[in-house]
């Protein structure tokens, strides 16, 4: 069953847009936190729309890298981590991605 419109992303973006409009009314410290709040709402909206990040035992991967067990498959390990890093950054701050990694 789907909820009525607007969907969750649209609701978040609407609140973010309203917060943006309030910025000039606040003093420096509150304005900064408000900008961060708007950024967080946009981030969550992108996360809702993005394909989910695959489950993975990253603690095990860290342990393998640390012991050198991944040295022989360095290139493949790089690709794996890069793939997940791009997926995370696309949610957090897509404009920080190099053009070749943008959707």
């Amino acid at each position: 069953m789907r909820h009525h419109r607007p969907d969750a992303s649209e609701l978040l973006r609407t609140v973010a847009s309203h917060l943006h409009a309030l910025r000039e009314r606040l003093d420096h410290g509150d304005r900064y936190q408000l900008i961060v709040c708007g950024h967080i709402l946009d981030l969550v909206a992108r996360e809702i729309e993005a394909p989910p990040l695959a489950e993975m035992d990253e603690a095990k991967l860290v342990a393998e890298i640390r012991t050198g067990a991944r040295d022989e498959t360095w290139g493949a390990t790089f690709d794996l981590i890069m793939h997940r890093t791009i997926a995370r950054l696309a949610v957090v701050r897509p404009e920080h991605l190099a053009p070749e990694h943008r959707l």
Binding site: V36, C37, F78, R88, V91, V92, R93, H96, A98
Partner: peptide, 26 residues
């Protein structure tokens, strides 16, 4: 607690991306 501290946890992706791109030589 603060919004700015909270979002730091997600912002790590920026440093991790720059790190990977640097290791790649890009």
């Amino acid at each position: 607690k603060s919004p700015a501290y909270a979002v730091c946890g997600r912002n790590v992706a920026m440093m991790e991306y720059d790190l990977m791109m640097t290791l790649k030589g890009a």
